[in-house]
Amino acid sequence: MDLAQFFDILWSVRWPILSGIGVTALVSALAIIAGSFVGVFVGLALTYGVLPLRWLARVYTDFIRGTPVLVLVLASFYILGTIGLQLSAFQAGVLALAVFCSSHVGEIVRGALQAIPRGQTEAAKAIGLTFSQTFSYVLMPQAGRQIAPAWVNTAAEIVKASTLLSIIGVAELLLATQEVIARTFMSLPFYFHAGFLYFCINFSIERLGKYVEKKLAIPQS
């Protein structure tokens, strides 16, 4: 394979590939942000919710976590349409990934909260903190240390799962790459290139996670 020829073609398709990266980043970011936000509440419901709520959150997480992302993507694109909620492929994709993300973050948050000794909550109660104060000032800072590494893992999963949106026609990085391959017949170099870009995106998330971990760590003296 002629390397100069590959870079030549790569330069000529820079805009479609860049727009693919943009769509992948946007879909992933929206899904991770929305999924993490909902996920924290799912985790709270799983840990401290009253029984019916805890039971509901349990069914939600188990059902979503036990379903392939592909099925979630197809369901939000096709099934929601038949009950009157017509989502575009982009919206349906973000919804499916966000829901998937929320179930994973929910479990991560539950695990982290349950790892905190009961005495912490009791002490917070004893000095008269409300539940939301207990959560923000006592529990979350401690849980955050547990959450950060697992959250990076989930975020990377979401970025990779975003490739499935090419099925319903979201022009993300994989589809943009396949479009180039269809014209140039250079499958190996361009798939390798796409793989490298996915690695870069996930590596940035990993670095971000490491940074957050460092911020949350107890200062060693």
């Binding site: 099925i167 319903i168 026609g169």
Partner: peptide
């Protein structure tokens, strides 16, 4: 044009 995979 709406893009779709062959399966869709």
């Amino acid at each position: 044009f709406v893009l779709q995979a062959s399966d869709a």
